[in-house]
């Protein structure tokens, strides 16, 4: 199965899901609703109440694949390792203001005026930053599998250098991005450890997750004569903590 999905469809699906589920979100709460979400009992201690889980943080790693010919022509189509740090603030039910910061670099060979490869090595460093509205489809505590979707704006800082040369270029692009994925609750696997994390550090849940993302980073289709299109799609796996 190809790892590349149609970005437009993904973005549309992500937005539709967020909009559609927003109407049903409030119906899922079973206890007196609070900003932080309903409380629950830890099963081995009926007097223990879970602390609010307002925030999330995590890191993920995977592969990013360039989507634009600007990058593919020099650096090829194969993916390279993408590192991501992320965090979020759950501000209303399961809606979260979510931020991500990533880093990936590609290496390739420059082209001559005929479009042929030369032996000059180039390297491009890309650091994308996203701000998304994220929705986690979590309807009860200890839900073992939690899908999520999100979309929003992005900016990317890029730096390209010709190796063994003083030739360097840099810039900032803006654009949009959308993501979707699924989280797997790890607490069930080791309840004592998860209980200790919660008591000692306030970490309510720990998840292992997969995330797919598409980012269109061409300054919203700006000046085609000058803009370096840094659009990419990525597949990453990571760990997320809710606290």
């Amino acid at each position: 199965m190809s790892l590349r999905f149609r970005p437009g469809i993904v973005a549309v699906l992500a937005l539709a899901l967020v909009m559609g589920l927003a109407a049903t979100a409030s119906a899922q709460d079973t206890a007196p609703p609070t900003k932080a979400g309903p409380e629950k009992y830890i099963e081995h201690d009926p007097h223990w109440f879970e602390s609010p889980r307002n925030f999330s943080t995590g890191f993920n790693i995977g592969l990013a694949f360039p989507e634009s010919n600007d990058i593919k022509d020099v650096y090829g189509e194969k993916g390279d390792v993408l590192y991501v740090l992320q965090g979020g603030w759950r501000f209303w039910h399961e809606f979260e203001l979510h931020a991500e910061l990533g880093y990936v670099w590609f290496q390739g060979r420059g082209l001559d005026s005929n479009g042929d490869k030369t032996s000059e090595k180039f390297k491009i460093h890309i650091a994308p930053a996203d701000l998304h509205l994220l929705y986690r489809l979590q309807y009860w505590y200890d839900q073992p599998i939690v899908p999520f979707v999100g979309a929003g704006g992005s900016a990317v800082y890029w730096f390209e250098e010709q190796l063994d040369s003083s030739n360097k270029e840099r810039g900032i692009n803006t654009g949009y991005s959308a993501q979707a994925g699924v989280m797997f609750l790890l607490d069930k696997l080791e309840k004592r450890a998860s209980g200790r994390l919660e008591r000692d550090y306030g970490i309510n849940n720990t998840y292992f997750f997969y995330q797919f993302k598409y980012a269109g980073l061409d300054d919203f289709g700006g000046d085609k004569d000058k803009t370096l299109d840094l659009s990419y799609m990525s597949h990453t796996f990571g760990v997320l903590f809710q606290f």
Binding site: L111, I124, N167
Partner: peptide, 13 residues
């Protein structure tokens, strides 16, 4: 030959 990276190529495109 004159070699160009992605940024320079995007400028020249």
């Amino acid at each position: 030959t004159d070699a160009k990276g992605a940024a320079e190529l995007a400028d020249d495109t």
